[in-house]
Design a binder for these strands. Structure first.
Length: 891
DNA sequence: AAGCTCACG
DNA sequence: ACGTACGTGAGCTTA
């Protein structure tokens, strides 16, 4: 059965714009109205199941109504540019949905819809009209239902002639009379003064039309009669204006309105452009109807898969031949387990066009597969794969080498948008218009339910992944070029991933006995503290439970609660520090917390990670996590080993060279972030300070407080240091006031004074925010990019956060670029000079090496030199070096 | 699985 | 008036 769905495009878009939060895509373009329209559209299509759809739009600035009444729609707020910008994209999207749209000069969307519903009535076609405007109710009929949006656009209320009768006691066509009497402020239709909905309804219940009301004026009295009498013309005209014109010369056939599902390739393209990720996923899931999506899936399903699981498997010879010809390929190696040092290796898939070869781990050990193993290891053959950093490690642990330059689709996807989740292959694929790859969660299950399927199904999945990788390579490569990040990829991140794998595989030697001994001492202290705390509290409780601790401190002992968290009292160190003078228990709790942290995270935590056989700890650096371009470290995290407090710092005594007589050499950049800021802001004063290698916090204090070096006391220096931190983080008066324990006003004055002196820095902060607004993203020295869509947010907090990100990311990110460069250069030096020294760790601004005695003198020079020369800035870079028998001694 | 707390740069 | 400093990972408790 036929069913038409007619949508008032302008009305719905307008509603959606005001109802939806101000979503933007990464280039800063607002897309909320389109999003609202689309979700509503999808919902209605599902609910109403129309066979024909038309979206009607207003066209032309004026129409016949303006001729009748020049003030028509006058005084209406001009359409905000944020909304009008959205129309062209919306129209493209509707097109991609395969939905007809129509507009004709001189008429509004209502008139087009009115004309079509007249036809629907005539031909007895079931029709639903979608609008945000109740004027449309006049079109209701036995066949025509009107859906009016409510609560923004998420729900609609359906009106039939019956419901209109129930609600208003009117026939549909009397809606015109209603408008004639009461007017409509939004369209600037005057109506009769003093007549609102209540009065108008009362009048129409007496007399069915405006005309009849007016010819029976004697039935009214008082002010109402007077108003009706003097505004007869206005009432008539208002009625005319509210009347939908139902004879528009529409040149559109019914067949053009047929809706037969969307073209998913086109739709995906549009949705990507708009960055509607949730819709992309949703449409994929709810697919089945769409032809080209099916095609894409079928293409993946149609791959020829060769399972190489036993000797003499079909396809092996073909694979070997193809590999020798160095054909373009897609490599996918399946590993299970988050920690690559412990992960299992489940299979290798190599896609070569339409053919995919899947090899079981057992088979890889067979003689016949030697050519494949050699191919994997060949440093001359570039590999195209997914998460090759992890793959290299996993394969290494399983005795297989992975060599060659990499093109890694995960790493590429990270550079293209570092804030976009964990870069799963199936999401990268969908974002790039490749459908049909189920997620690992779907195929393997997750959490406790994780279970690999049997071989045919598993291998099918791996084959599809390898094929997807192959398809993604050219797409991502092009995007890297388009975004000017190709060099960042090929010269920095790509080579770095190999270096990281080496560092991780090597690990760092840790002396168990040192940790164990410290653990025994900590245990004793913790025991003593526990007893004392229980005594002071007068009860036993879980000290490490913030909830129970809060009850003890703030209820039982009656200490003044200061901060609150979402769930109750805050008991963090800041609160406890303040509470310490009130009760001796507080100091004990602080001590307990400190020691408990050392014990559980650093003593017990690290001991669990020391390899029995080698006494080494192998961390894993993640290269695709941090939004700024930094590395992060996991299993265990070796980038947060204590240093600030002596008790914790002792942990570093356990980190030692792996060979007797060798040294640990550590070098760290001095003030790299402020030096980067001096360079990119070009601030003369800041540059001067670094060129003369002055103590930057003292210098800042001198300039901000206007005093000489001798006059800077420790308090002034402390304040200046906090201001410098604040500047790097994207300054806010609130943050600074918190940090320094001063009022916001004082903090604000500090900042103002700072900016008055460091004018170039102020200009940088202003410029970078402007740049973020203009481009939708900001870049680091090496063109690493981060999108900041929230820079356009109307919510102060969200926008401010985005501004701080815009200020901080080029600084933190450029510093990350620089040390990564230093790592690549350092690695090259070690190789060229054939040194035995090894790079072990990176801690954001520090590199740690183990060095044989005969290279110590050289490395003490070389490391800081390479670090300082990693990049040429307008200010010198300085790296300080130290060494010793452990990481603790290298200070 | 989420929230709190705390270790680092 | 709004309520936060930027970037991470891990352990513990509790829902």
């Amino acid at each position: 059965m036929k069913k038409w769905m007619l949508i008032d495009g302008n009305s719905i878009t307008y509603r959606a714009f005001f109802a939806m939060p101000p979503l933007t895509n990464s280039s800063g373009m607002q897309t909320n109205a389109i999003y609202g329209f689309t979700t509503m559209l999808l919902k209605l299509i599902e609910e109403q199941k129309p066979t024909h759809i038309l979206v009607a739009f207003d066209a032309g600035k004026t129409n016949f109504r303006h001729e009748q009444f020049t003030e028509y729609k006058a005084g209406r707020q001009k359409t905000p540019p944020e909304l009008s910008q959205q129309f062209p994209l919306l129209k493209e999207l509707i097109e991609a949905f395969g939905i007809a749209q129509y507009e004709i000069d001189g008429y509004e969307a209502d008139d087009i819809i009115g004309t079509l519903t007249a036809k629907a009535d005539e031909q007895q076609i079931e029709t639903v009209v979608i609008s945000g405007d109740k004027d449309m109710l006049q079109l209701a009929s036995p066949k025509v239902t009107i859906a009016v949006t409510r609560k923004g656009v998420s729900e609609v209320e359906l009106y039939s002639p019956e419901t209109i009768q129930e609600k208003y006691g009117l026939e549909p066509k009397q809606i015109i009379d209603l408008k004639g009497l009461m007017g409509d402020t939004s369209d600037n239709i005057p109506g009769v003064p003093g007549v609102g909905e209540k009065t108008a309804l009362k009048l129409l219940h007496q007399f069915p039309t405006v005309e009849e009301v007016l010819s029976n004026l004697d039935a009214q009295k008082g002010k109402l009669k007077e108003n009706l009498t003097t505004h007869q013309e206005a009432a008539i005209m208002s009625k005319q204006l509210a009347t939908i014109f139902r004879e528009v010369p529409i040149e559109l056939t019914e067949d053009q309105m047929i809706y037969s599902g969307y073209d998913s390739a086109k739709l995906a393209e549009q949705l990507q452009k708009l960055e509607f990720k949730s819709l992309l996923e949703r449409l994929d899931v709810s697919a089945g109807s769409s032809s080209s999506e099916e095609e894409a899936k079928q293409a993946l399903a149609a791959l020829t898969i060769y399972n190489i699981t036993e000797q003499g498997s079909e396809g092996l010879a073909q694979l070997v031949t193809a590999l020798k010809q160095q054909q373009m390929h897609g490599l996918y190696v399946e590993t299970i387990g988050e920690n690559p040092h412990l992960a299992t290796f489940e299979g290798i898939a190599i896609a070569l066009g339409e053919e995919v070869f899947v090899i079981s781990p057992a088979m890889l050990k067979q003689q016949e597969l030697v050519p494949v193993v050699e191919w994997l290891a060949d440093e001359e053959i570039k590999k195209y794969g997914y998460d090759l950093h992890k793959v290299e490690l996993v394969l290494n642990w399983h005795g297989i080498q992975l060599g060659g330059g990499y093109f890694d689709v995960q790493l590429a996807a990270y550079l293209l948008d570092p804030t976009d989740g964990n870069q799963l292959l199936h999401t990268i694929a969908e974002r790039n218009g490749i459908y049909g790859l189920p997620s690992d969660d779907e195929v393997y299950g997750k959490g406790a339910k994780l279970k690999l399927p049997a071989e045919p199904e598993l291998f099918q999945h791996l084959a599809v992944k390898a094929s997807v990788v192959q398809q993604l390579v050219p797409k991502l490569n092009k995007q890297l070029e388009d975004t000017r990040m190709a060099a960042l990829y090929y010269d920095l991140e790509g080579p770095l991933s190999r270096i990281l794998a080496q560092m991780e595989k090597r690990g760092i030697k840790v002396e168990r006995t040192e940790l164990e001994q410290q653990g025994v001492e900590l245990e004793a202290s913790l025991k003593r503290l526990t007893t004392e705390i229980y005594e002071q509290a007068g009860m036993e409780f879980k000290i490490s439970s913030p909830k129970q601790l809060g009850e003890v401190l703030f209820e039982k002992l009656g200490l003044p609660a200061k901060k609150k968290t979402k769930t109750g009292y805050s008991t963090d160190a800041e609160v406890l520090e303040e509470l310490a003078p009130y009760h001796p228990i507080v100091k004990n709790i602080l001590d307990y917390r400190q020691l408990a942290k050392l014990q559980s995270t650093y003593i017990e935590g690290l001991l669990k990670e020391v390899r029995e056989e080698t006494g080494h700890i192998h961390t894993y650096y993640r290269q695709t996590i941090a939004a700024t371009g930094r590395l992060s470290s996991q299993f265990p995290n070796l980038q947060n080993i204590p240093i600030r407090l002596e008790e914790g710092r002792k942990i570093r005594k356990a980190f030692i060279p792996s060979e007797p007589g060798w040294s640990i050499v550590a070098a760290d950049y001095s003030q790299i972030e402020l030096r980067v800021l001096a360079h990119i802001s070009g601030d003369e004063r800041l540059k001067e300070a670094f060129i003369h290698n002055q103590d930057i916090h003292t210098k800042t204090a001198m300039d901000v407080f206007g005093v000489s070096a001798e006059e800077v006391d420790s308090n002034m220096r402390r304040s200046a240091k906090a201001v410098n931190f604040g500047i790097v983080y994207g300054i806010s008066d609130f943050g600074l006031s918190q940090n320094l324990g001063i009022t916001r006003k004082e903090a604000s004055q500090f900042i103002e004074q700072y900016f008055n002196v460091f004018r170039g820095v102020r200009k940088y902060m202003d410029d970078i925010i402007a740049e973020a607004k203009k481009n939708g993203y900001i870049v680091t020295l090496l063109d690493r990019r981060r999108y900041v869509p929230d820079i356009h947010a109307s919510n102060f907090n969200i926008r401010s956060f985005a501004e701080r990100i815009a200020m901080n990311t080029p600084i933190q990110g450029s510093a990350a670029d620089i040390i990564k460069l230093a790592m690549v250069k350092m690695n090259a030096e070690l190789e060229q000079r054939k040194l035995q020294s090894r790079m072990l760790l990176q801690v954001h601004d520090e590199l740690v090496f183990e060095v044989p005695p005969h290279e110590l003198e050289l490395m003490k020079e070389l490391v800081p030199q390479v670090m300082a020369d990693a990049i040429k800035l307008d200010v010198p870079l300085v790296a300080d070096v130290s060494y010793g028998d452990s990481w603790y001694e290298a200070k």
